[in-house]
């Protein structure tokens, strides 16, 4: 569903990604791990077509990015909350969902607000929202058009355990339905819930595999130890 072939990218002279190959199947929850500055966000932006890599190619649904017809196939949540603070939660969601939906717009909007626990706050302006609420609204926006692919840059950072659980429940429901989900995360607890993981460090994939395989391979009980093993001094 998502295919990255030999992605190399530089900002100026600094190499941020080097020869990254990642293949993600349909209905998979794929976790992208790595310390800050390892190139996760750059890789995510390349997947969405917002950034064109110097080398390599990106394919979504076997079609090469960037492509306009693919833009409506995925939902994207950026690391920074891209929201209009003057507008209410409902108006923000309405704006973004209008690019995708017409008929079922209202139902879908209500549905994603319920999932993210924001339904009762929908008429409050985003400026008065807490950091966690803004995060949740960004996630709601990414999911509103029920896309086949979700690309989520640190979706649950700063959320309380209750909301986090409800969101993961939704992720698993979507997975059953065939949605492919890519998330980046720092949280080991979350990485554990993914089907497969890739560890990025200094722009290179240094390990890939399922959480259990990693634990077996590195003879540890927790993923945290695996992360420390790879991350070294930076983690």
């Amino acid at each position: 569903m998502i295919e990255l072939n030999g992605i190399t990218h530089k900002f100026g002279k600094e190499k941020v990604l080097e020869g990254v190959d990642i293949f993600i199947d349909r209905g998979e929850i794929f976790g992208l791990l790595g310390p800050s500055g390892s190139g996760k966000t750059t890789l995510v932006r390349i997947m969405t077509g917002l950034l064109i890599p110097r080398e390599g190619e990106v394919k979504l649904r076997n079609q090469r990015m960037p492509k306009r017809s693919l833009m409506k196939r995925f939902g994207y949540m950026a690391q920074e909350n891209a929201l209009y603070y003057e507008l209410t939660a409902w108006e923000n969601l309405d704006f973004f969902s209008s690019f995708y939906l017409r008929k079922q717009k209202k139902e879908r909007m209500k549905y994603v607000l319920r999932i993210t626990g924001l339904l009762e706050y929908r008429n409050r302006s985003v400026g008065s929202f807490s950091g966690g609420m803004r995060r949740r609204l960004s996630l709601a926006i990414a999911m509103v058009h029920d896309p086949e692919i979700l690309i989520l840059d640190e979706p649950t950072t700063g959320l309380d355990p209750v909301v986090r659980r409800s969101i993961w429940k939704e992720f698993h429901r979507l997975k059953e339905q065939g949605t492919t989900i890519l998330i980046t995360t720092h949280s080991m607890e979350e990485a554990d819930k993914c089907d497969r993981l890739a560890m990025l460090r200094a722009g290179k994939v240094i390990a890939a595999g399922s959480p259990d395989a990693w634990k077996r391979e590195y003879h540890t009980q927790t993923l945290e130890d695996v992360f420390l093993h790879f991350g070294g001094e930076e983690a």
Binding site: R68, M71, E80, Y84
Partner: peptide, 14 residues
Amino acid sequence: TQGTLERVLATPIQ
């Protein structure tokens, strides 16, 4: 600067 421009360009808009 808020990132909304990039976010909007991640939709099918021209």
